[in-house]
Amino acid sequence: MSIVNHDFTDRIIEILNLHSGGSGRLLLKNSELIQYLNIKTKAANRGSKSRAGLANHYAIYVLVEDYINGGFNTINGYADYDGAKFCDLFRRQRELPFGSKLQNHALNHRLNEEFRKYFPSCENLPIIRDVGSNRYWINEKLLLADLNERQINLAVPIKEIIEAYIKARKSAFSEFMNYCQEIVDIQENSPEKAIDFIKGLFRPNVDARIFEIASFAVLKQYYADRRIYWGWSPEELIEESLVLYKTGRTNANDGGIDFVMRPLGRFFQVTETVDAGKYFLDIDKVQRYPITFVVKTNESCAEILKKIELQAEAKYQIKAIVKKYIESVEEIINIPRLMAIFKSVLGSGKGSNVVEEIILQSRVEFNIEAEEQDVLTFKNADM
């Protein structure tokens, strides 16, 4: 496969150069595992669409670390090694920055499955696992790469690549949070800067989680100014503001709906795709209950809906079925619509509330409190 080039690729080559006398690009070309890490580190660029999920990075990291701790990168004998215990690997993963909520899926199957997807012709998978003893090994064959008629062991550079990536991610998140706080502090004196900051979060190439958080913050303030009157009888009506609730962590892939509005009971789903299959899956989750889709695109709402309809007709062919699905799309909110809504929120003087909500949700999403407690450990490079 062709090599993916992005901002962090140069850092990967720089690390490989240090361990190969300047042959980093050749090592990248000759190692499927390094190529996989290159693919998985696109999110080091803050503007990447790639989500900074770390489960697969850390599955590789803890196994390579175990390999190095045993000295197998300098001596033979890994084939005779009893393997690492799952409990030790799992505990180590959760000690790492951003790793406190990691599950066991990457170690057990997801890393191997994704690696196979990218490298279907490769005979080796990264993790070797013995289910009976619950022991794990890194596939040593993937740690060895040909370099000018000799083999080089990549365990140490792989460990350093993942460490460099995590430092880049932590730096990006710290910068983001610091900038958010700065905007809160100065928004009264410099509202233009606050506006530009939030506008920058509504781009097709922004991180998916940040887009979802920013969308929620803007929509929550927008609907808070809308009131309805309801009750059991015309004589006993209650005046109530619309309240938007975030129902879980962003991009959790947990089968849930992203936002719910009370008391109307509207459902909102945030997506970055115009794939009818994805929309209909979300609609089926709630038995075709109407859903508002917040889409990370500049395409017009009419264009998006038309694309969905055409895909539905191609897939289902039966007009009655297509009609039921299309009718379940209550509203489509694209980036231009979000910008218009944000303009309305600014007009009502609630721009600072949006920024504060973004900070609050970001701290929850990125485990900022938990990570701040580990800053010293992180800086002391126990990783």
Score class of each variant (00 low, 15 high):
Y179C: 14
K159D: 13
I152C: 03
E149Q: 03
G200Y: 07
R209Y: 03
I183G: 07
A214W: 01
I186C: 06
E192R: 07
I198Q: 06
I158M: 11
Q187G: 00
A214N: 01
N153D: 10
A168W: 01
R209T: 01
V156M: 14
S174H: 08
K170M: 10
S171A: 10
D185I: 06
E149A: 01
I161P: 09
N153G: 03
F197S: 13
D185N: 12
R203G: 13
M177L: 15
I166V: 15
K159R: 15
Y179S: 15
I213M: 05
F173K: 08
I195G: 04
C180G: 15
K193A: 12
P204A: 08
P191E: 10
D207E: 12
E188I: 02
R209H: 09
E149P: 00
K159P: 03
V156H: 08
G200D: 04
P157I: 00
P204R: 07
A164L: 06
A168D: 04
V206G: 03
Y179I: 11
Y165R: 08
F173G: 05
Q151F: 00
N178C: 09
F176V: 12
R203Q: 13
K199I: 05
E182K: 15
K193Q: 12
I161Y: 00
A208S: 04
A214D: 02
V184M: 13
P157G: 09
E192L: 14
S174K: 11
D207S: 07
G200T: 11
L154T: 07
S174I: 11
I183L: 12
K199T: 06
F197V: 10
R169W: 08
L154F: 07
P191S: 08
F202A: 04
R209E: 14
R203Y: 08
I183P: 06
I152T: 10
A155D: 06
K159N: 14
L154Y: 03
N153Q: 04
F173W: 14
A208Y: 01
A208G: 04
I162D: 12
P191M: 07
S174V: 08
D185S: 13
L154M: 12
F173Q: 11
E188H: 06
D185K: 12
V184R: 11
N189G: 05
P157H: 11
N189T: 04
S174P: 03
D185F: 03
I186P: 02
Y179W: 05
A208D: 06
E149H: 02
F202G: 00
E188W: 02
I210M: 11
I186N: 08
E175C: 05
I166P: 13
N153W: 02
D207H: 05
N205L: 01
E149L: 02
P191I: 07
E188F: 02
P157S: 09
L154N: 06
E212F: 01
V184H: 07
N205V: 01
